[in-house]
Amino acid sequence: MSKFVRDVMSRSVITCTPDTPLVEAARRMTDNQINALVVLDEDGEICGLVSRTDLVRVYNQDYAGMTVEDVMTPHVTTVIPDIPVAAAAQLMLDNKVDRLVIVHPRPATQRPVGVLSLSDIVREMARA
């Protein structure tokens, strides 16, 4: 039976804002044992993604005064919860992204309702 993104995605979305200090972003990732935070604008809509890799890129710089805005990726690949996991996996491979942010089709907003990471898909493969 083919599974859908809604069946395997993580429903807890840990977020930050563009002006969150980088050190605080590192703390949130470490405390929640996650690899990325979804960056939200003042309307609560997705405006970027900041991953561990984005933080590591500035390790050799004076990052103490930096904020998430300085390192985040503004391009976020979003999908709706009702597509098959196989299609989501292919999208991640094609776009070379480690995670997709899930948004609801109706009403069409950019408010995140979940995150699908490579780990979620591997866990699903282990259950199959």
Binding site: L22, V23, A26, M29, T30, N35, R52, L55, Y59
Partner: peptide, 9 residues
């Protein structure tokens, strides 16, 4: 990257 980010926190 997990180990490096722990250092940055």
């Amino acid at each position: 990257t997990t180990d490096v980010v722990k250092q940055m926190r």
